[in-house]
Write a protein that binds this DNA or RNA. Structure first.
Ligand SMILES: [Mn+2]
Ligand SMILES: [Mn+2]
Ligand SMILES: [Zn+2]
Ligand SMILES: [Zn+2]
Lengths: 142, 142
DNA sequence: CAACAGTTTAGAATAATTATAATATATAAT
DNA sequence: ATTATATATTATAATTATTCTAAACTGTTG
């Protein structure tokens, strides 16, 4: 799904009924320049801010999981206490800012292709992803 | 902490009172050849199998967190639905078997050092870790 | 307009983790 | 050794995130 799409059409094509809740959630998720990394709570908060009518929390969960199942969202595990979703569903690397708990996507060219030398018999590699944890550099800061 | 240590001494040195619960948990965690990757549930199950007297679940949580705080255990996030701990506290890479949900440590020589070209101003890199997801290769399997 | 499957919703249920506060234990002080 | 103190364990309650339930509602199809 891309920016400024007709989500009604897109949802229907995908096999999801374009309810007003789903269209609104798609607008919040996909009508943006950059990748969006969010928790269900982030999303629910955004919805209640940007919308006059409320969407039930169960619907937010249902919709996020439906979109994930259809391949429009990817679940990211960084912090075992928080479940993140990502509008970038490709295999890709992340920076994780430990101060702000924000995820940032890494462009292909920002991390050299990882060379995995080991292989496990009978198993194939599904993905190779790098997580770079960063935090504020307190060296020159009293 | 290493294999066959005197955990009573070790715990005391660390500033933790060597209660019989803690010593037993240390034996289960650290008296082994290889790194141990576990969930609280895995550990609680092992305890109840290997021990005649029970250890309360609260104590298992308390002890794991105490050991983590002292730097003897590291929390690993792979699966947002499960919280893993790791007796290997160094920065290191993992294979994750999606069939069995097992983590496997990666030796230094099995993955080439990852070259991170990007840097974020004001932030320093704390760790660079790779996660290789593997699953059974169903190509030659009817 | 039916008719029907799919969706939303409030609220209940579940599960993992953390908090509470009484009891027990380890260590330090006498 | 006895006592005093800080720490730890425990059963149980509370909290939190997520999922389930079942009734009401809505989108689609004919
Ligand atoms: Mn999920
Ligand atoms: Mn934790
Ligand atoms: Zn991403
Ligand atoms: Zn490990």
């Amino acid at each position: 799904m891309l920016k400024n799409m007709n989500f009604i059409e897109k949802l229907r094509e995908t096999g999801l009924r374009p309810t007003k809740q789903r269209v609104k959630i798609c607008e919040i998720l996909f009508n943006r320049e950059k990748t969006f990394h969010f928790t269900i709570n982030d999303l629910a908060k955004k919805i209640s801010e940007e919308l006059n009518e409320k969407i039930s929390l169960a619907t937010v969960y249902n919709t996020v999981h439906a979109l994930q199942k259809k391949g429009y969202l990817k679940e990211i595990s960084i912090n075992s206490h928080k479940s993140y979703f990502d509008t970038n569903t490709s295999v890709h690397h992340h920076f994780y800012d430990e101060d702000t708990q924000q995820l940032i996507d890494c462009d292909e060219n920002e991390i050299e292709t990882v060379n995995v030398k080991k292989n496990i018999t009978g198993k194939k590699i599904n993905s190779v992803e790098v997580l770079v944890r960063v935090a504020s550099d307190n060296q020159n800061q009293n």
